[in-house]
Simulated assay, not measured.
Amino acid sequence: MTARLPSPPETVDESPKDEPDRQFATTLASGLDLLLAFRVGEAALGNKDFAERTGLSRPTVARLTHTLTELGYLRHDPALGKYHLGAAVLSTSYSLLAGLHIRQIARPLMKALADRIGAAVSLGLRERTSMVYVETARSTEQIAFTPDIGATLPMLATSMGRAWLCRASAHERDEVLNRIKLADPAAWRRYVPQLPAIRSAFEQRGYCACRAEWRDDVYGFAVPLARALEGRVFVVNCGVPVEGMKFAALESTVAPQLVALVQELETLLGMR
Rank of each mutant, 00 (worst) to 15 (best):
P196S: 07
D216P: 03
P193K: 11
T2Y: 11
A222N: 02
S91H: 10
L32P: 01
L268K: 15
P59Y: 05
K181E: 10
I105L: 13
L123H: 05
R272C: 00
V61I: 15
L258V: 02
E172D: 15
P185H: 12
Q263F: 02
V235Q: 03
I143S: 06
L68G: 03
E251Q: 14
A260Q: 12
E264Y: 00
L45P: 02
D216H: 13
E141N: 08
L100G: 00
Q194D: 08
E172A: 14
C210Q: 09
R107Y: 12
V254I: 14
L100I: 13
E52P: 01
R167Y: 00
I198A: 01
T140A: 14
L97K: 09
L269C: 06
R167H: 06
T92Q: 11
C238N: 05
V176T: 15
R179A: 15
R211G: 00
A88W: 07
L64P: 00
T26D: 07
G55W: 12
S200R: 15
A170F: 10
A183D: 08
P241Q: 02
D115W: 03
T65Y: 04
P108N: 11
V121G: 05
F50E: 01
P196K: 05
D148K: 07
L35P: 01
P154Q: 05
G220P: 04
A201I: 00
A248K: 10
L261V: 09
T136P: 01
F24M: 07
T129D: 09
L113M: 08
L56D: 04
G244Q: 04
L35E: 10
G220D: 05
P8D: 08
F234G: 01
A120H: 06
E175A: 13
V61M: 08
A3Q: 10
S159E: 07
L156D: 02
C238T: 10
A228R: 13
S30M: 10
T65N: 01
P20D: 12
R162F: 02
G55D: 10
G86H: 06
N47R: 12
S169E: 12
M1S: 12
E213R: 10
E243Q: 15
L225G: 01
A137C: 08
G150W: 01
E135A: 13
I143R: 06
D216E: 15
A112W: 00
Q204I: 09
D21G: 09
R215M: 07
G124T: 06
Q263R: 15
R53D: 09
L45R: 02
K181Y: 02
A98K: 14
F221C: 09
K111Y: 10
V262C: 13
R162L: 05
A106N: 03
R272Y: 03
T27E: 13
P154M: 09
D217V: 02
F38R: 01
L258K: 03
H76C: 05
M271R: 10
I143G: 05
